[in-house]
């Protein structure tokens, strides 16, 4: 397939950046979207041009590094996938494809399509953990009986890979789906209850502090999330936070 790409190019954080048009020819419909970009980059390097910078790592949908706002949607037109799992057969020969970085004040562009998602790391550091006794006689987690429903819900929430597609898709650039998944995966388990109140308060405060927007329940995040994280988690975060804030001194 032959394609026309409109790609955001930006030298560095401070540079202005613009959409540039490229042509790629002979792309296999079986290749992944990132492989298609590899082909383009090979071309650019051969011509002595600067290749397009984009994030990627595992290329199998588990690390959350690949981002990209493709033709107006996070991770492109397919559902429940990351960009490395997007295949070129989703497009037609001759298509024009817009490729932009995640857009959010809290995710500044570093270069081209690469954004700085360390705001998520700082939110995690604010409370996304459990304190464990590491003195040598650590208790086996399985020793605590946990209702199957809770375990399943906690596990579902824990599948969040921190990709940021929720923020990118939300009209408010809100990070609520991410934060709610990270709060839920611990809040649902007895090990996570000890620090539950502090966690909810600190993570939400950090989220606001990073400059993410306010959730208005549009539900765009849930639809675009590659891991199908449910809005149910956001309702849980609202409950966790509100009850913690009422009790907080």
């Amino acid at each position: 397939m032959d394609l026309i790409l409109k790609i955001w190019r930006q030298k560095n954080k401070e540079a202005k950046g613009e959409l540039k048009t490229y042509e790629v020819k002979g792309v296999s419909p079986d290749s992944s979207f990132l492989e298609m970009l590899d082909v383009l980059n090979d071309d650019l390097v051969n011509k002595g041009d600067e290749p397009v910078a984009f994030d990627h790592d595992c290329r199998e949908g588990i690390c959350g590094m690949c981002s990209l706002y493709i033709n107006g949607e996070a991770h492109g037109p397919d559902r429940a996938i990351t960009t490395c799992q997007l295949h070129m057969r989703k497009f037609k020969d001759g298509d024009t494809i817009y490729i932009e970085p995640w857009r959010a004040a809290a995710f500044p562009v570093v270069k081209d399509l690469v954004v700085d998602r360390s705001a998520f790391d700082r939110i995690m550091a604010a409370g996304g953990f459990v304190s464990v006794n590491t003195s040598g006689n650590t208790q086996d987690a399985n020793a605590l009986p946990i209702p199957k429903d809770d375990a399943d819900k906690a596990f579902d929430a824990a599948t969040c890979i921190g990709c940021g597609a929720c923020v990118a898709s939300c009209k408010n650039a809100s990070a609520m789906l991410f934060v709610s998944a990270k709060v839920s995966q611990l809040a649902l388990l007895p090990q996570g209850r000890v620090e539950a109140e502090r966690r909810a308060i600190h993570m939400v405060e950090q989220m606001d502090h990073e400059g993410f927007g306010n959730c208005t329940n549009t539900g765009a995040c849930e639809v675009e999330c590659p891991k199908g994280i449910s809005l149910e988690n956001i309702a849980r975060l609202n409950r966790e936070y509100l009850s913690a804030a009422i009790k907080a001194e």
């Binding site: 107006g72 857009r103 539900g219 765009a220």
Partner: peptide, 16 residues
């Protein structure tokens, strides 16, 4: 203000 630079191509109707 949480998204100072908008997308050049956006399809919000696909998800909300």
């Amino acid at each position: 203000a949480a998204r100072p630079i908008k997308y050049a191509m956006n399809k919000p109707a696909e998800n909300s």
